[in-house]
Design a protein around this nucleic acid. Structure first.
Length: 868
RNA sequence: GGGCGGUUAGCUCAGCUGGUAGAGCGUCUGCUUUACACGCAGAAUGUCGGGGGUUCGAGUCCCUCACCGCCCACCA
């Protein structure tokens, strides 16, 4: 069917091709033609989630996946979703609340059934949305972190860690979210700058005197079990070892010396509340201080001995205790204070550190190999600077709190029997493996959702079973994600895989830029700054959206969303559509490629083939380096400007002539277009398939077409230079004509060039075609004329005379040339330059000088004639 | 407190190991030329954040300052 419309409509094309590809099974791994496999585990989005611009960035993965498919590798892109414990629990709790119920009301068993039912019925909407972007993942291998096999993998992982002694349970200070009523890990705490107050409290010292301490949380003083000073602080040396009597509760606590105390902060003395502050907890451990809990799990005060405060929320308790302290004369002063307060990154509640019994993973031994692989280079980061961030975190790693007090997630696979034997089991045990007792109870907590995510790249392939997929497709090659989960997820996959499989899960980590709103703010629903990728696709097509993502994604910088740039890629698709329209006219659809007879190539043909080879190298290199920007820029420039604007304009007369030369031109043009479409396919899969099918090609789909190979023999440097010169002459002619009379089209002209342009006749013909000149008639001897000088070539145009304007223009050009000559000459006359600069650079400057001098001489001649 | 990124044309951004400043959009001029007006042709626009240094030569390397953004940390 011939292409009639002058406009490419992505909506008429994309869905159709996607369905065709998926139904044909093109996204499933094929037998490798290279012996290589190429695997990417797609970062699993939250099952509750909707597609946002962050997911659109996964287009980078699809570019690589499609490229490797064309290279002939056995390619597998594994998709899936994550149960995202807290987020999903919140969704379901809201649903219950609407019905006036709650999870506590229905009980754990009914809740578990509800959750399972929800998993079964929820449509993984987001994976459907990803198809709109053209993602060529193998959906038949879709995984969910709550699938039966995946749960089994999680239990195996936990149990193996346990048996190696890498998991322990113990009371430690944790970040407690009073709203979610769960512990969260350090990484899930976000610190927010807050205007607060710093309270200076006077604590009476037994035997006389007071010691002043500063605190932003005065209510915690009822949990104080000590006062600490720096051991080298002379001011307090005599007080160390003595005892303070706390106001209000009138408890006696010691004054201790500890290095953690900053002499310069506040008074240099600090109240120690090991029960509710991480630093204080550590001081307490070192100094053997008592740990007192003063909070209920919902964040209310648990302090029966002070009825005035008991049961109050923290803000109320803070206000009340200030009154009480003031009444006792213990409040010295209050000053404004700005500091960071920890908040839950899920629900934004203020975190209350408290001591609680939790499950922990010992990180130090796991970190050692994870550091080694990054140092050795078997784990690489793009951009490279993330390696340092990764290493810094790994080297300073602390134990990982993996238990959450939620009702949704992977239950911790630990059972306790009546005789208090605590053991981890892969499957629910019938009896205690130590004593045989049969009244076992499972730990009520669930695992941090990142514990299961850490297994993603190998558990999705079947681990711990030794599946064929695991054998063939593991390890993966590339992991691409945003930087915010470098530690939460990427780092944890590395040490987990090294521990269980003794292998790096991926060799290259791409950290793509974060998409910001057009004004530079973070994209977020609550700010109203979010952009829906599906709407962008509706407006500009998936190809344009992908090209935009790929262009900016690998730059490593954050990216402001810019619809204009996406629009430009839509126009690019349209350009390709019209090029195809031009070339496919008169061609039978789906014909075989036309053989190119090398003997009949004209210089223009050889030139565009050479440029095609160069662009093939550029794109391939760009993909290899995980830097897609140059590939996209290069293809855009090549296809639009060199191929369409220059080459096609040049061969149009030949195409219409219907000669043997027409056959060659058509064969070359079709070949260049076909190859360009293949080079572009990983980035813009839809339009390239649509157009590829309409021109001569081999194979049933561009998805499985071979990746183009460069042929450097075609890159004739002399030809490229001569062509560049010719195009420069063309531009200069057009410029002069436009200045003289912008409405003027074709006119007579003469060309003089000491060296013939591209073998003279052909060059003159090209010049005539592109610059719209009549070169055969010659100019009448007395006709008004304009001169165009580019290097060695002079074109004399028959244009209306404009008195002084012409010589003024030439004088200006001459002046510019002379400045250039002075500049280069200055350089060459500097002995340091000629001695120290590389020979090639000096040579180039000499050549430039010669060119400029030639032009200047010619201009001088013309002016001499003109002024005479 | 420590660290990382950014600062290049009106806007959004490229510029690899130092060697004549680039793109897209926008602006201006002209053109409805049988692929494309979502187009073609032409043009204008930059003390490459400030200062210092290294070098024959610095947007690019080093030091320093300023502002913007991010990360880490036991900011009581």
């Amino acid at each position: 069917m011939p292409l009639m419309d002058t406009r490419y409509d992505p909506r008429a094309v994309e869905q159709r091709w996607y369905d065709t590809w998926e139904q044909a099974g093109y996204f499933k791994p094929k037998e490798s033609l290279t012996g290589n496999t190429f695997t990417i585990a797609m970062p699993p989005p939250n099952i509750t989630g909707d597609l946002h611009m962050g997911h659109a960035m996964y287009a980078l993965q699809d570019v690589l996946v499609r490229w490797h498919r064309m290279l002939g590798d056995a390619v597998l892109w594994v998709p899936g979703t994550d149960h995202a414990a807290i987020a999903t629990q919140n969704v379901l709790e809201k649903q219950l609340a609407k019905k006036g119920s709650s999870k506590e009301a229905i009980g754990r068993q009914a809740w578990d059934e509800l959750v399972q039912q929800w998993y079964d019925t929820t449509g993984h909407t987001i994976l459907q949305q990803m198809r709109r972007l053209g993602f060529s993942a193998d959906w038949s291998r879709n995984r969910f972190t709550m699938d039966r096999d995946y749960v089994a993998a999680v239990n195996v992982a936990f149990t193996r860690f346990w048996r190696r002694g890498l998991i322990y349970r113990g009371p430690r200070i944790v970040n407690w979210c009073p709203r979610d009523q769960s512990a969260i890990s350090d990484l899930e705490v976000v610190f927010i700058e807050t205007d607060d107050q710093l309270y200076y409290l006077d604590y009476p010292v037994e035997g006389g005197g007071v010691i002043s301490v500063a605190t932003s949380r005065p209510e915690t003083m009822v949990g104080d079990t000590g006062v600490a000073v720096n051991p080298s602080d002379a001011r307090y040396r005599d007080l160390v070892g003595r005892t303070v009597v706390l106001p209000i509760v009138h408890r006696r606590v010691p004054i201790v010396a500890d290095e953690a105390v900053d002499i310069d902060f506040g008074t240099g003395a600090v109240k120690v509340t090991p029960g509710h502050d991480a630093t204080d907890y550590e001081i307490g451990e070192r100094q053997k201080l008592e740990t007192r809990n003063i909070l209920h799990l919902d964040g209310r005060m648990d302090i029966p001995e002070v009825p005035d405060l008991d049961g109050m929320t923290v803000p109320k308790a803070r206000a009340r205790i200030v009154e009480l302290l003031r009444a006792e004369g213990a409040l010295q002063r209050v000053e404004p204070y700005r500091h960071s307060v920890g908040h839950c990154d899920r629900c934004n509640a203020v975190i209350e550190p408290l001591v609680s019994s939790q499950w922990w993973v010992r990180m130090k031994p796991l970190a050692v190999p994870a550091i080694k692989v990054a140092e050795e280079g078997s784990l690489r980061f793009h951009p490279n600077r993330w390696q340092e961030q990764y290493l810094r975190w790994m080297r300073n790693i602390r134990d990982w709190n993996i238990s959450r007090q939620l009702w949704l997630g992977h239950r911790i696979p630990v059972w306790t029997c009546a005789n208090d034997h605590v053991v981890a089991y892969v499957d629910a045990p019938a009896a205690c493996e130590v004593c045989g007792d049969r009244t076992l109870t499972q730990d009520p907590d669930v695992l941090d959702t990142w514990f299961s995510s850490a297994l993603w790249p190998f558990a999705t392939l079947g681990w711990p079973k030794e599946t064929a997929d695991l054998a063939q497709f593991y390890p993966t090659q590339v992991l691409d994600t945003a930087r915010d989960i470098l530690y939460l997820w990427v780092a944890r996959m590395v040490f987990t895989s090294l521990h269980f499989l003794d292998i790096v899960p991926f060799s290259d980590v791409i950290i793509h830029g974060t998409v910001l709103a057009p004004d530079g703010r973070r994209m977020s629903k609550s700010l109203g700054t979010g952009v829906d990728p599906l709407e962008v696709i509706d407006r500009h097509g998936a190809d344009a959206t992908r090209a935009w993502c790929a262009y900016f994604g690998t730059s490593g910088q954050d990216i402001r969303f810019s619809e204009e740039k996406i629009k430009s890629y839509q126009l690019f698709a349209n350009k390709l559509w019209n090029v195809t329209r031009l070339l496919s006219a008169g061609l039978p659809e789906a014909a075989r490629p036309i053989p190119i007879d090398e003997a009949t190539l004209e210089p223009a043909d050889a030139w565009i083939l050479g440029r095609l080879s160069a662009i093939t190298r550029l794109v391939t290199t760009s993909f290899t380096r995980f830097e897609f920007g140059p590939a996209i820029d290069g293809l855009y420039e090549f296809a639009w400007h060199e191929f369409a604007d220059d080459y096609l304009e040049l061969v149009k007369p030949r195409l219409q002539a219907g000669s043997a030369s027409a056959t060659t031109a058509r064969a070359v043009a079709v070949h260049v277009l076909e190859t360009t479409l293949r080079l572009l396919h990983p980035i813009m899969p839809f339009v390239t398939e649509e157009l590829w099918q309409r021109i001569p090609h081999e194979g049933e789909t561009i998805v499985l077409a071979p990746w183009p190979l460069a042929d450097e023999r075609l890159e004739d440097q002399r030809l490229l230079e001569e062509m560049a010169h010719l195009l420069a002459v063309v531009r200069a002619v057009r410029n002069v004509r436009h200045l003289a009379d912008p409405t003027m089209r074709r006119q007579p002209a003469e060309v003089q060039s000491p060296r013939p342009l591209l073998g003279d006749a052909v060059g003159r013909q090209y010049l005539a075609t592109l610059a719209q000149l009549e070169l055969n008639g010659g100019l009448a001897p007395d006709a008004p004329r304009r001169a165009v000088v580019v290097g060695e070539t002079t074109v004399t145009l028959g244009l209306p005379a404009d008195g002084g304007a012409e010589s003024k223009r030439l004088s200006a050009e001459l002046r510019k040339k002379r400045e250039e000559i002075d500049l280069i000459r200055g350089k060459l006359e500097n002995p340091d330059f000629t001695r120290k600069a590389p020979e090639a650079i000096v040579e180039r400057e000499r050549a430039r000088l010669a060119q400029a001098q030639e032009t200047a001489e010619r201009l001088q001649q013309l002016l001499g004639l003109g002024s005479g």
